[in-house]
């Protein structure tokens, strides 16, 4: 147990600070995100991530948002387990036809007001998979999309920027 505490103390806080003078773009973004969340969402925004057919690349980067370096929860952004708790659906992948009904039901289960973010090139335009017998292509072909975050996959920084642009809308 002592080793655990020693390592924890030695590691310290790795989260990239919001108010450093040499603030990188991410830090500046963080401040802005927090302000918008406070203003329009009473301090917190709940996101339900839905993989509608992705290769899992986007999920890996969405996961990274919760690592101690990005730690998006400090801006009041958190991921929830049910669409019924969500303000925002974060949808990845081209929509596999086998997932079409599931995605529609998830959308219906999300209370209003709600926003949909299409994450990644596949969700934006169908990407490498396009429209076929097995794929509906872009998320917008299935449910209304408010904003699109492109990238294959988008980096965590791009994801934070995307969330901000939603809130500024």
């Amino acid at each position: 147990m002592l080793r655990l505490f020693a390592k924890t103390l030695k590691t310290g806080i790795v989260t990239e600070k919001i108010k450093r003078p040499d603030a990188s773009e991410l830090d500046a973004l963080g401040i802005e995100v927090k302000r918008q969340v406070d203003k329009y969402f009473s301090g917190s925004i709940a996101i339900r991530a839905v993989d509608a057919g992705s290769c899992n690349g986007c999920e890996l980067e969405i996961h990274a948002l919760n690592n101690p370096i990005y730690d998006v929860e400090r801006y009041g952004i958190h991921f929830v387990a049910s669409p019924r708790h969500a303000d925002v659906l974060l949808v990845t992948g081209p929509v596999a036809r086998h997932m079409q009904t599931a995605l529609l039901r998830t959308y219906e289960a999300t209370p209003n007001p709600k926003w949909v973010i299409a994450v990644g090139d596949c969700a934006a335009c169908g990407g490498e998979f396009g429209v076929s017998y097995a794929s509906c292509g872009a998320v917008a072909n299935v449910i209304p999309v408010d904003i699109v975050i492109p990238g294959c996959p988008p980096t965590p920084e791009t994801l934070v920027k995307g969330l901000l642009s939603l809130m500024k809308k």
């Binding site: 993989d51 057919g53 992705s54 290769c55 690349g57 992948g93 081209p94 596999a96 086998h98 997932m99 599931a102 990407g127 490498e128 998979f129 396009g130 076929s132 017998y133 097995a134 794929s135």
Partner: peptide, 25 residues
């Protein structure tokens, strides 16, 4: 098979470079 995206069918007719892109996904 919920995320079946028709990868085998999509591969047909691709050039070698485009197949690598698909395989990478």
């Amino acid at each position: 098979a919920y995320v079946h995206k028709g990868i085998e069918k999509l591969a047909e007719g691709r050039t070698p470079e485009k197949l690598v892109r698909l395989a990478g996904r």
